[in-house]
Design a protein around this nucleic acid. Structure first.
Lengths: 134, 134
DNA sequence: ACTTCATGTCAAGAAAGGTGACATCAAATT
DNA sequence: AATTTGATGTCACCTTTCTTGACATGAAGT
């Protein structure tokens, strides 16, 4: 949608996303169950979230806090983007991996940037991710 | 919004609207209480609904049936139009009343057109009102 | 006069949302 | 290889909100 492929790269396991969004794994899986979000999966079936996924989760959190129920969120948020469905699960064999930085390195770097700078509460707000894509 | 002043004319008391929308008075007042709709009032404080109000109620009904709660409807539907707030309560003294047809006559006519043609179920659906404004 | 409408309140059922806690097994990381 | 992290599933539970029905009383409309 954006043209920026990084936004759709499936990078984060659920543990990271928990910390980024301050949602419990229970909640995140609950929202997936109700089709508010469709994260990619690794070959081993573990969820991997993209930046877009994380932003969507932040929007969901936002609406929930406004009292909007699941059905309402489905009306408000654009239906689950096919971009998630065809999300790029970047493994070491992918074409992108052949460039300067491996996915592993990218994830490590982002993990540091996103989490380690803020001890204690690391909750992001909507828009906080945008600075990574200026 | 439309330029068609008739869409904002406060014409129908709650009883008519009940039949048009198949909502109970309870429900309609409930939606007003929660600021989903702001009908005009007569001098005697009774609600008077415009065509726009009725259409809005049909949309609300639609969303309710999809399971969207009040908070969600507020997100989905454009916030209550100021057109309702400054809704034209047409009484016999108003300028429009000086034209061919009095408001009383108009209401009688519409009542017949909208209700008497369909015995039993007279529930309208979204868009049904549009034929009055072609 | 008769019908319709307004406001307010009690009640209550139903669903929805959200969580916690386990248990078991598989995947990933180091 | 060992440790951590994640997946699925389930039972249970609580709390809240929604949403509506049903009355009662008094005023407005026709």
């Amino acid at each position: 949608m954006n043209g920026d492929i990084r936004r759709n790269m499936a990078l984060f396991p659920i543990g990271i996303v928990m910390k980024l969004t301050d949602l419990t794994a229970r909640q995140i899986r609950y929202y997936e169950q109700h089709e508010l979000i469709v994260p990619a999966r690794t070959n081993g079936n573990q969820r991997l979230f993209s930046f877009n996924d994380v932003e969507r989760l932040l929007e969901i959190k936002n609406l929930i806090e406004k009292g909007v129920n699941i059905a309402g969120i489905k009306q408000v948020l654009p239906s689950v983007s096919q971009s998630s469905e065809e999300a790029t699960y970047m493994n070491e064999q992918s074409e992108v991996a052949r460039r300067e930085m491996s996915v592993k390195d990218l994830r490590r770097m982002l993990k540091r940037q996103l989490l380690e700078k803020r001890p204690g509460q690391v909750t992001l707000n909507q828009g906080d991710l945008s600075r990574f894509f200026q």
